[in-house]
Design a binder for these strands. Structure first.
Lengths: 222, 222
DNA sequence: CTTGACAACGAACAATTGTTCAGCTATAAT
DNA sequence: ATTATAGCTGAACAATTGTTCGTTGTCAAG
């Protein structure tokens, strides 16, 4: 699956163009960038890139090119993104906000975070929502104030999942790892092994979602 | 700056289309999606959206639309992304890999991570590179094995920055917060306050970069 | 030498797509 | 009643863009 110098140039240009302009280039734009005078030659090389699995083409569609990222380890960069609504904050004293039914990215005043799909466990990017972590109280050292957590909305969890759990009696939200003990009780294990786990009766624990991604921006905060 | 129902629909569709297909829609595609029979009406509404600062248009360019995200809090989603080379692993025993000069995303066998710009401290997305964190030894509880850290390559740091430092004598890499003490010494402070800081002579500390983003994927790992 | 592949050129064609314009309707202001 | 404006229609036009085809040159295998 060796690619010629030109094909590498084309692929590289496509990547830059897409990242830069937010749309794929046309055949002629590619030609101009890599000094190919004829559109048919560009077309020819694009077909090769397609056979190599590096790109996908859509016929009869202007700019119908997509980077598939096959040649590229993990870096997808094909312009496919997921916009995840930032529903609010997760705080100790309040229940976790839950996504509305018809939450288009436009509706209401939601902020949102846009992520590339390669960061997420593939499949349905629906049902995902993001929360700002506010206050250190409920969380241990592995997640901090100001972090953004991307959650998948679900009411059950598997052993080891990091979940947002609502403790009914205490009226409290907490982010912990979930374990179902042989005894039937639920063990909520802080990510920091130095902290002691919390054993709860299953009836007192309501799972609101599972954490799939944690993002910490270190630029603004100290 | 009130937008009509139709304009909201158009904007919403543009967002979905862009995220979905990786390219902006054409005027006719928009028309079909929002039940507008005439291209001129779509054009008309697009001009309004442009004046409202929600989108940008490029004349005489097919799919020459871009979401500017002005109407949208933080969620940029305009298809502009940054591809960051994943240079390798950061391990205790080895120096931090440093980006080559001519690192196009294509060259060599680099993997890469693609991020949307809204996650990064704006400005030059150049000079950024990503590393896999490997092994718990050098890091304290705030960063884990398997995390991805996005670094900015720089040899100096400000107080409080989370840096990758190379300790010459110990031949060891470590991720810690950097503080210049009044005494002139350098204090390397673990993110976990339970751990003791490490005081070093400045000559022994070589800063290789500053951490700007930490990403933890919780899907695969246990 | 001939054959066949690969890589490229140029040109023409067809489809897609952005642009423009005359006109229609309803509603609110003059 | 008249005017103005927002929102729309339909159609034609021009520009952009994808597709196809005939041709050329190179180079290695037969």
């Amino acid at each position: 699956m060796n690619l010629s110098e030109r094909q590498k140039q084309i692929y590289s240009f496509m990547t830059r163009f897409q990242n830069d302009k937010g749309r794929p280039p046309t055949i002629r734009e590619i030609g101009a960038a890599v000094n190919i005078s004829s559109t048919s030659v560009v077309n020819y090389n694009l077909n090769i890139l397609e056979k190599a699995g590096m790109i996908a083409r859509e016929k009869q569609v202007s700019r119908g090119l997509r980077l598939t990222g096959n040649g590229n380890g993990r870096g997808m960069s094909d312009g496919k993104m997921v916009q995840i609504p930032l529903l609010g904050r997760i705080v100790a004293g309040k229940p976790v906000p839950i996504p509305d039914a018809g939450t288009s990215a436009f509706e209401s005043d939601h902020e949102s975070v846009t992520l590339t799909r390669d960061l997420l466990p593939d499949a349905d990017a629906e049902k995902l929502y993001a929360l700002h972590v506010k206050g250190d109280s409920m969380i241990d050292a592995s997640i901090h104030d100001g972090d953004i957590v991307v959650m998948k909305h679900q009411a059950t969890a598997q052993n080891g999942d990091l979940v947002a759990a609502w403790l009914k009696k205490e009226q409290e939200t907490t982010l912990k790892r979930y374990y179902r003990e042989p005894s039937g009780k639920v063990r909520l294990q802080p990510a920091n092994p130095n902290f002691k786990p919390r054993i709860e009766r299953p009836e007192n624990v309501e799972i609101h979602g599972k954490v799939v991604l944690v993002i910490r921006q270190l630029s603004r905060a100290a």
